[in-house]
Design a protein around this nucleic acid. Structure first.
Lengths: 237, 237
DNA sequence: AATCATTTTTGCAGAGCGTGCACTTTTGCA
DNA sequence: TGCAAAAGTGCACGCTCTGCAAAAATGATT
């Protein structure tokens, strides 16, 4: 039974560890087989055999064959969420999310081997790409909550006023924006930011894949978030 | 055989029309049955029977059972794309997309009956929601292309400079921002805008569903795009 | 109206997916 | 060492989806 990198999760009893190992073995076998033979030509039987368990056991770990293909980065969302919560106090929400994502992406670039296989699998079968994105959409809720908590605890941290304190360009003459509207924004804003940030990552990866020769990923990623921070202004021709 | 609203697509021979009718009948039967009995309790056999065709014929129209559940709005993306292309010349790209989407959403609100069933189905089974969003992601490419063409033809209308007129990438000795960087932005920008706009719609719908009593959808939708246009600034507490 | 090429529909066989159930093996603990 | 709980396994069964070849429907032509 091949084992994935055991970096994380050496805690718990033998039972717990073996469960994690089996799950990881199944997930890695799935990706390796899919990268080699194509997703459609990999049966659950083959994956189970490669991981050294029975077919029935496979379905004890995954609800469907496709789930096993996209099980690699199951914990990435949680790490980003925590990074946003513990980001330096001076950062705006958008900046905090950007930093958290950048860290995670660097982490992924370190485990380049398995991830390039994974990327090939996703590229080959769009069907799985959609499931992959769907899995990350589930993380959005947690991220939005982290953003909301960050805002609630103060955009400036415990120490001092804000650098990014923008004068509100309210369209209503003289009068301020209603208190109600401000409260409502608090609810919509975190969700929107979480979702839009995830989208920006996706588009950046997509764009970068077509032009790896011209630009580094970090550069594309940075530009995407700059565009967001500027309000997606029409580019000058 | 029940027929869906025949609003669009009365053109073509009898063959063509009958094919469209069969496909529509299958799609509608799928949604109605799923809304009533739950997605998991609807077999292909039941859908086919409700539409008056054989099981084998079902698979001549859809690659999978799930595809039949999300086949209602197959043409929405194309309509938005066209709306963006033909939007008033004075609008910025972001504004043009917002208007195109708003029009489509009003159109949907008109066919309230089937769409509320559809919404229930998507709400009940997240699995299908992901497929639904994936289907719309495919539209992103077309929308991005429309945005790019709109930018190329001039943000001020057809009376502007030539469409294919791209300044030569000269060595960036003179200006502040390099000419190369500006050209690159043209490529990344449309994709980012298309994707982010779709995301904003999704978040708006999601948010609105939880608070229909407090705010109209148009209001939420408008606020989301205002936040985008402002660069997602940290809300004031 | 009768004929014919084309397109669509259909039944059938078969591989693979996924689940419920009962049974065996392994694990952690007393 | 023995025991209760958890994990793994084999089997039966229904559903999904595909390939193939035959049957039915369609639209144009004579």
């Amino acid at each position: 039974m091949h084992l994935m990198a055991e970096k994380r999760g050496t805690s718990g009893g033998l039972r717990e560890r073996k469960k994690r190992a089996t799950r990881a073995a199944l997930a890695e076998a799935a990706v390796r087989l899919a990268a080699e033979h194509g997703t459609d030509n990999v049966t659950v039987e083959a994956i189970s055999a490669a991981a050294g368990v029975s077919v029935r056991t496979f379905f004890n770990y995954f609800d469907s064959r496709d789930d096993s293909f996209i099980a690699i980065d199951a914990e990435a969302g949680e790490r980003v969420r925590r990074a946003v919560l513990h980001a330096p106090a001076g950062l705006s929400p958008l900046e905090a999310v950007r930093e958290g994502l950048a860290t995670e992406l660097r982490e992924i670039e370190r485990q380049h081997g398995l991830w390039s296989l994974y990327a090939r699998v996703l590229r080959t079968s769009p069907h799985l790409l959609v499931r992959h994105l769907g899995a990350h959409m589930a993380d959005e809720t947690g991220l939005a909550e982290a953003i909301a908590r960050r805002i609630a605890s103060g955009p400036d941290g415990p120490d001092g006023p804000a650098p990014g304190d923008r004068a509100t360009p309210s369209a209503d003459g003289g009068g301020d924006v209603g208190e109600n509207e401000r409260r409502r924004a608090l609810d919509l804003y975190p969700r929107l930011l979480a979702a839009v940030a995830g989208t920006a990552v996706r588009v950046s990866v997509d764009y970068w894949c077509c032009r790896q020769e011209e630009r580094s990923f970090a550069e594309v990623f940075r530009q995407s978030f700059d565009l967001l921070a500027d309000g997606l202004p029409a580019p000058r021709r």
